[in-house]
Design a protein around this nucleic acid. Sequence first.
DNA 1: CGACTGACGCCGA
DNA 2: CTCGGCGCCAGTC
Length: 113
Amino acid sequence: MSEQKYQRIWKTVKAIPVGKVSTYGQIADLAGLPGRARLVGKAMGYAPDDLQVPWYRVMRSTGQFAFAAGTDLAKKQKGLLQEEGVVVHNNRVKLSEFQWQPDLAELLFKLEF
DNA sequence: CGACTGACGCCGA
DNA sequence: CTCGGCGCCAGTC
């Protein structure tokens, strides 16, 4: 199995700081898998609980949640983000304000690729 | 092996 | 802003 890819994706997602969000596409790029946004989505679903991957900080490139408004997961995601101070409006987040802007030093330190 | 299915993304109408 | 269409790729049937 391509366990290796998932490991890299999970590690990258864990590097997202509290109070910030990222997108599936951005994670794919940072994990060295450009164009594999869908794979990131799968990786979130397969992520083991004990890894404590902050999947709720990852959304679509539009700032929309990955789930339809009203669903359990969407509500959970909204709650968790608001606890971190991220403003959520109509099932979406203002990326221009909350998207994670990783700097090289941070990536080298946390990802170690 | 082909068809279908997504926690996606971009572009054009 | 909404649709439709296409690219992408691991899993499943």
